[in-house]
Amino acid sequence: MVPIEHVTALSAALFTIGVIGVLVRRNLIVILMSVELMLNAVNLAFVGFNRVWAGTTEQPLLDGHVFVLMVITVAAAEVAVGLGIVIALVRNRDSVNIEDVSILRW
């Protein structure tokens, strides 16, 4: 069995990559992908932790798995709205670069 430390480390690494992606990249689509990466790192953590808190064979505990299903569903809805917003922007601006989106400041 893979020890839980490895799962946690992998999920933390993925999450960090996602955070850096959101903060550093300038392309909106890549930013969306980075957010998805963060959510998937969370899913990995939940599934990993659920192995620690699995309960007994007669009475399995599934909190982590249920949470993952919720996250997947919500992530799909989120991306749909996010892409919709990006499309509205591309129609008006013809660009997916976040630096072109800066009328509002200070």
């Binding site: 999920s11 999450f15 996602g18 955070v19 959101v22 909106l28 930013i31 957010v35 963060m38 959510l39 790192a41 969370v42 953590a45 939940f46 932790f49 808190w53 909190d63 982590g64 949470f67 996250v71 989120e78 709205v81 996010g82 917003i85 990006v86 509205a88 922007l89 008006n92 601006r93 989106v101 800066s102 009328i103 509002l104």
Partner: peptide, 26 residues
């Protein structure tokens, strides 16, 4: 457009951070 986009990016980013916190608490 810009308002929606900024709210979306920051909002999902914040939700992901909150969610990771929940995962660690779990």
């Amino acid at each position: 457009n810009e308002s929606g986009l900024k709210y979306f990016i920051i909002g999902t980013f914040a939700s992901a951070i909150l969610l990771y916190g929940m995962a660690l608490l779990y």
